[in-house]
Simulated assay, not measured.
Amino acid sequence: MKKVLLDLEKQFGPLEEAIFLKRKNRFVGECLLNGKKITCHIADTGRLKEILTAGREILVSPNPPFLKTDSKLIAVRMEEGFILLNTSIHSKIAEAAIKLGILGFIPDTIEKEVKTGKSRIDFLVNGNHYIEVKGCNLKVGNLCMFPDAPTVRGKRHLEELIKLKQKGFKTSILVLVLRDAEIFAPNDKTDPEFAATFYRALESGVEFKSFKVKIEDRKVLLNGSVKLLQAL
């Protein structure tokens, strides 16, 4: 039985297929819907150079008229089908996956957006297990990588996990893989500092966890996991 993590149309309302034209800036794209040019809000601020290219089919959700853009960008069609491209729901998807046991157990309690140090960590499970989620949509061959743009915030989250581990908490970096890949690695070419901190976190005892998702019938489904590429 397929495990559904999120129903996109229950979350965003009816979705419509459009054609992506161009990215006007980090947050706004232009697309063609039913022969008319409209704007779409892009929640993912990564570079997305391999993904948001002119002519790709996308799924959009119409916005109410009081918002600045006409629609929200939800997903884009790649070789493996539509892939999720809306970071606003990563936390909901990860929470659903955690509740289904992707950590290896069914949790009793889940706290969200827990403040620690100078950051907020995505989840605190069972009062003693801190989990930070990172969504990954950059794919090269069979390898998925994060980030696709330098992330000071992401590095800081890893540093917080290291400190929490040193204090005796259980800690995990949970990678949400949005592509049909088999292996994960931190993107050391784009952000060598994040990559170095990632492997330092693993050496300190922070655990690597992952799960893949795919979109079918406007639903986000659990689709296995990926292996970690070990540092050379």
Rank of each mutant, 00 (worst) to 15 (best):
A231H: 14
A185P: 00
L176R: 07
I51K: 06
K214I: 05
K36W: 01
G117T: 04
G55D: 02
A18G: 01
M78I: 12
N223M: 05
F82E: 00
G101Y: 00
T109H: 09
G13W: 05
L5Y: 06
S71L: 02
A201K: 07
D108A: 14
P107C: 02
L33H: 05
E207T: 13
R26L: 14
I83F: 02
I102H: 01
L48I: 01
K2R: 15
N128S: 14
K167N: 12
Y130H: 08
N142M: 11
K170V: 11
T45Y: 13
R218A: 13
P192N: 09
P192E: 08
I38S: 03
Q166H: 12
V226G: 10
G141I: 02
Y130L: 09
F12M: 07
E79P: 00
M1D: 12
V152L: 14
L52Q: 02
K134H: 10
V226P: 05
E79A: 12
K167P: 02
E132L: 09
A195S: 15
E182A: 15
H90L: 08
A75K: 01
G81R: 04
D122M: 05
L229C: 13
M78C: 09
K212H: 05
E193R: 13
V28C: 11
F105D: 00
E182W: 06
T190I: 15
G101H: 00
R23H: 04
G135Q: 03
S91A: 13
V175L: 15
Q11Y: 10
R120W: 05
R77A: 05
V76Y: 01
P186Y: 08
P62L: 08
A201C: 11
K212G: 04
E216M: 13
L161Q: 09
L143N: 04
D148W: 03
A231K: 15
Q230Y: 14
A181W: 01
K99Q: 06
N25V: 01
T39K: 13
K165R: 15
D217W: 07
F123Y: 11
A149L: 15
V175I: 15
I74S: 07
K115P: 04
G101L: 00
I162R: 10
I131Y: 06
S61W: 00
S61T: 00
T190G: 09
L103M: 11
D44S: 08
F105Y: 13
R218K: 15
G224E: 07
V206C: 09
K163C: 05
A18P: 00
K163F: 11
E203G: 10
R23T: 00
G224I: 01
L232G: 14
L176T: 04
Y130G: 06
S88Q: 12
E9I: 02
A195Q: 07
P147Y: 04
